[in-house]
């Protein structure tokens, strides 16, 4: 990557080269990641349900999603007549945008983050809440009651679950003393009985709340009521077909990766690991391993728990998660105050 960067820096200048390498790298990797995650999801689902999952295309079906993607690319794009056309076409593009921005903020290694900002963590939390805007635009512009209902549910859900996520993130910020993601990883870890441990060990409740919250924010089961097939046909993406439909899935799986990476950075120590100081290239490897661990647990939860009813979902957020997250934040502050 750095050799390529040096090669491009000649004609383009340092900033231009960073921009080009960054954008192409992130886009390429995210595309690969979506293909991989969809395959993984089907495999995980298969094995949890005591079947094999896709097996036909390529060894163990690894090329199945590539074939699916080619099919979706070739599919006719249907636009219903009575849609709000401009918003309808804008939504699938916009749904991808916040996630892309967030992806560039996750620190990959000791000197590798495309954008290192002092309030990186707050920016990430802010931007990842914007996906819901695009989802609602899609639901409304479709001019279909199921789509509007799905969009409204999505708004209610994301707004409710954003609060516990923010509070959980805030308790980690209190312990770490910084909102810069890079510093958050490289700062000396808190010590438990003399042993330095990642923030997830000293903030287990925050980690659990964060995990539940990001599962809800990515609209995944058991919190997938915005697209509940059995009651809303497909929810907000009912009226989308072909590649436009695929864009919503692209966004969902990319969101999973990015929020998983955020969780790994916050609670599991990010790119830190054994020998990472000596071999900087290990940083991204560790980060990806931890990220995919979080993503795997998200899939595991999806195929284990049944979907919640809408009122259960809302009361779970407002009556349990938010008070718990608040209590955790206060407890963290008190403990830190006593220790200081």
């Amino acid at each position: 990557m750095s050799a390529l960067h040096a090669l491009l820096a000649g004609p383009l200048g340092g900033f231009g080269a960073t921009l080009l390498v960054g954008v192409v790298g992130i886009m390429g990797y995210l595309t690969f990641n979506v293909l991989f995650l969809i395959w993984l999801e089907r495999k995980v689902a298969g094995h949890i349900q005591r079947r094999l999952g896709p097996m036909e295309v390529g060894p163990h079906g690894v090329l199945q999603t590539v074939a699916d993607m080619l099919k979706l690319l070739g599919k006719q794009l249907l636009t219903p007549v009575a849609t709000d056309r401009f918003v309808y076409l804008l939504a699938p593009l916009l749904v991808f945008l916040p996630t892309m921005c967030v992806a560039s903020l996750i620190p990959l290694g000791r000197a590798q983050a495309f954008a290192d900002m002092p309030y990186g963590l707050i920016i990430i939390v802010t931007l990842s809440g914007l996906t819901v805007l695009a989802i609602f635009m899609a639901g409304w512009a479709s001019n279909n009651k199921y789509a509007v209902l799905g969009g409204m549910r999505s708004v209610a859900q994301v707004v409710a679950y954003e609060i516990p996520v923010l509070l959980a993130v805030l308790s980690v910020v209190l312990v770490a003393g910084t909102t810069n993601l890079h510093q958050l990883v490289t700062n000396p870890w808190p010590r438990l009985l003399g042993v330095p441990v990642p923030y997830g060990v000293v903030e287990p409740l925050a980690a659990v709340i964060f995990f539940i919250g990001i599962t809800a924010e990515t609209n995944r089961a058991p919190f997938d009521i915005p697209e509940a097939e059995s009651e809303l046909v497909g929810g907000f993406h009912t009226e989308y077909s072909g590649m436009r439909f695929a864009m919503f899935f692209f966004a969902e799986y990319t969101n999973m990766l990015v929020l998983g990476a955020l969780g790994a950075t916050l609670f599991l120590g990010g790119f830190r690991g054994p020998f990472q100081g000596a071999v900087p290239l290990l940083g991204p490897v560790y980060l990806l391993l931890k990220t995919y661990l979080v993503v795997f647990v998200m899939m595991w939860a999806r195929w284990t728990f049944p979907r919640l009813r809408f009122d259960q979902l809302m009361s779970f957020a407002w009556k349990l998660l938010i008070p718990l997250a608040l209590a955790n934040l206060v407890a963290t502050a008190v403990v830190l105050g006593v220790l200081a």
Binding site: I123, V132, W140, M152
Partner: peptide, 23 residues
């Protein structure tokens, strides 16, 4: 930076709610 982030967090983030009422 901070003001920009807060602006997006408060105004753009809350727009989704406003949209629900708009519908």
């Amino acid at each position: 930076d901070f003001l920009a982030v807060v602006l997006i967090l408060v105004y753009v983030g809350a727009v989704a709610i406003a949209m629900v009422y708009a519908v």
